[in-house]
């Protein structure tokens, strides 16, 4: 029955690509990385983020003075060799508190980005993939949620949980922050599920979980990462705002927002108490947004060959 098979292994068509080193894949990510590293503003952002990360880690083991210790020097003491950023209204070392604040900011930023991304990705995938009533319910939830002020949600949550511990603040911000991610992922999923390779995956018996995790999610990863990057500064700013209002982590946690609020009362007397954490906050937000923009441009499919 079977005719003698011809051997296809070394055909002309093959040789065209055999100049490549075997196994050396030029991935799309490498491409993006090259573009990112040629963007100086994004690199500045990255440098600040790395510095911040180092400071945050170091602060967990060492700060010049304990962040909570009062009366180390003169109240409202200005910058000096012993206290480069001066002292605050109860004589705490501002540099030490700034370092501790970096850890809080990063924990809030990364924690919120992670948690709200998980919520947003899961709901977005479900809505976009299953459409129908699942989509109707999730989209309705998103639209209603948009209408409710974030601050109200967080305040209610903090009241209900009856705790202002940092982890609960992170959860509280996360449940307000997933909406854009969910919308983004839903849109991506709606488009990707119609792509031929998803149809092909279905035809080879891939289950829904596999379609979502192996085919749809990896192809939406670029925009998801960009969106998650923007979530970090937004969460840090929101936490600072909450702390400024006295709704954030309770004293003596050295949250930058709380430091600004405490110094704010004596702005004219000792501006550095407010300006130093405010400046740290601003630099951090600018750096994170610059990095997010760079990442977006680097991963933008329109810029791809």
């Amino acid at each position: 029955m079977a005719t003698a098979p011809s051997d296809y292994v070394f055909q002309d068509e093959f040789t065209a690509d055999s100049t490549y080193e075997t196994g050396e894949a030029v991935s799309l990510w490498k491409d993006a990385w090259r573009r990112l590293t040629s963007n100086y503003f994004a690199l500045f952002g990255l440098a600040v983020i790395v510095l911040l990360l180092l400071v945050a880690i170091v602060s967990q083991f060492w700060t010049p003075y304990p962040t909570w210790k009062q009366g180390i020097g003169p109240t409202y003491g200005g910058p000096s060799a012993a206290h480069p950023f001066g002292l605050d209204q109860v004589g705490r070392d501002i540099l030490s508190r700034l370092m501790g604040g970096a850890a809080i900011a990063l924990a809030v930023g990364l924690g919120t980005a992670l948690l709200s991304s998980i919520i947003g990705i899961a709901l977005g995938l479900l809505a976009g993939f299953y459409r129908g009533w699942v989509d109707t319910v999730i989209s309705l939830l998103i639209n209603v949620w948009y209408g409710i002020p974030d601050l109200l949600v967080v305040m209610l949550f903090v009241v209900i949980i009856n705790s202002r511990e940092l982890k609960w603040i992170i959860v509280a911000i996360s449940i307000t922050a997933w909406l854009n991610m969910a919308r983004l992922v839903r849109g991506q999923t709606l488009a990707l599920r119609e792509r031929e390779f998803v149809e092909a995956a279905r035809s080879i018996g891939t289950r829904d979980v596999g379609l979502l995790t192996r085919h749809i999610l990896p192809n939406a990863l670029g925009p998801i990462i960009v969106q998650a990057t923007y979530l970090i500064p937004a969460a840090i700013l929101f936490e600072a705002f909450l702390s400024f209002l006295g709704l954030g982590a309770p004293p003596p946690e050295p949250s930058w927002g709380a430091m600004c609020a405490e110094g704010y009362k004596s702005l004219q007397l000792a501006a550095h108490v407010t300006l130093v954490p405010a400046f740290a906050l601003a630099i951090t937000l600018i750096a994170l947004n610059a990095f997010g923009d760079g990442l977006r441009d680097a991963l933008d499919p329109r810029m791809r060959r």
Binding site: L28, E196, F197, A200, A201, S203, G205
Partner: peptide
């Protein structure tokens, strides 16, 4: 899904029908 083992498809567009993120 089980039935699909017996019944396969080859697609027109060899670019669109392969997942770019998979080896």
């Amino acid at each position: 899904r089980r039935m699909r083992q017996e019944l396969q498809m080859i697609f027109q567009d060899p670019y669109a029908s392969l997942n770019p993120r998979m080896t």
